[in-house]
């Protein structure tokens, strides 16, 4: 059943298994004990950072499947995306698996987008089991979107740090695990923010738009959720979102957290916090899913936000369009 942007799942597909991977900087995160694998060095025996990102993606997909006691042949579709041009990490990782592949680009919103699309396909009865995955690597993303790594420049105070990490969830119509009950797909929002070093401000309006649509369509309020999680708005973006929601009459209180804001510690000089596909993927597939399984959080609204810019568009002075997708996970 659908209501404008929101889809209510009748059969409530389940997340039967998940796996996460993190880079060496993320080792110092307070959530590090929940990560399944932490890399010792950021190249991971590969010859380029692009290959490392691909290997990370292959690793999470393979291990999530294995953890569900399945083999890649049992998976009906692989739904994944990443940040690199032409989503090469996802497509190249898909070569390793003899599985139907659906590539997505939702920038940093990919984790929520792939889970929402995957849940739709499973709920509709078209597929039995799908793998939803994404990953990002600080060094590959940084060299594509910004300056060479070793360039000795200062980052502006609004900058965020791309998370080296990734995650994969297996969504199935059978089995045990938390259920995906509702998904709200976002609309592109553009409030004419042009600063590519201030992603939080660019993405906050998209997050607001999705949250408003979600609360309205599901007739819920922020208090109905044990936890409302946003992807990588960062410290500034999260503050802006709280203000925007308050302006529209919804109060995001203690039950609101932003993955980007809390993934790094203060001493790591990441300024506004983490960003990238891997940020929300890592947090969802480690800490959050475990807490949902343990029923510490029974109903979680997971929303990932993405800034849909390219280097070409930002050099041509275009503003940054953004998107946010949300899903409700219950146990």
């Amino acid at each position: 059943m659908a209501k404008k942007q929101t889809i209510f799942f009748n059969n409530q597909p389940r997340i039967i298994s998940s796996y996460s991977i993190a880079g060496p900087k993320e080792k110092y995160s307070v959530f590090a004990p929940y990560f399944d694998l932490v890399l010792k060095n950021d190249l991971w025996d590969c010859s380029s950072y692009e290959m490392t990102e691909r290997k990370m993606l292959e690793h999470v997909i393979f291990n999530a499947i294995e953890r569900a006691k399945l083999s890649p042949q049992d998976i009906d579709a692989l739904i994944c995306g990443d940040l690199l041009n032409q989503i090469i990490s996802s497509s190249f990782a898909a070569r390793k698996f003899d599985v139907t592949y659906i590539g997505l680009f939702g920038a940093c919103s990919t984790m929520a987008e792939s889970l929402a699309v995957g849940a739709c396909l499973v709920d509709g009865g078209y597929f039995d089991k799908v793998a939803c995955a994404t990953a990002s690597h600080f060094s590959s993303v940084e060299r594509q979107f910004r300056m060479p790594l070793e360039l000795g420049t200062q980052r502006p105070p609004t900058a965020q740090w791309t998370v080296t990490g990734g995650g994969c969830s297996i969504v199935s119509n059978k089995g045990v695990g938390p259920k995906i009950t509702v998904a709200t797909f976002g609309k592109v929002a553009d409030y004419n923010v042009t600063d590519a070093n201030n992603m939080g401000a660019a993405m906050a309006p998209a997050a607001m738009s999705t949250l408003l649509a979600h609360f309205e369509n599901t007739k819920t309020t922020p208090d109905d959720y044990d936890l409302i999680v946003s992807g990588d708005l960062g410290k500034l973006g999260a503050e802006i979102l709280v203000d925007l929601m308050e302006y529209h009459g919804y109060k995001l209180g203690q039950n609101y957290m932003d993955c980007g804001h809390c993934i790094y510690t203060n001493g790591q000089h990441t300024f506004m916090g983490g960003s990238g596909c891997g940020c929300s993927a890592l947090m969802l597939n480690s800490y959050l899913i475990q807490k949902i399984r343990e029923k510490e959080y029974k109903k979680v609204l997971f929303m990932a936000t993405g800034a849909l810019l390219s280097t070409t568009s930002s050099f041509q002075g275009e503003s940054i369009p953004s998107i946010a997708h949300a899903i409700v996970i219950e146990n």
């Binding site: 923010v193 201030n198 500034l236 503050e239 802006i240």
Partner: peptide
């Protein structure tokens, strides 16, 4: 958009 950008500008932490 103008109002939003002015608001964002006021929230940005200064160097």
């Amino acid at each position: 958009n103008e109002r939003y950008n002015a608001y964002v500008e006021s929230k940005i932490p200064k160097t």
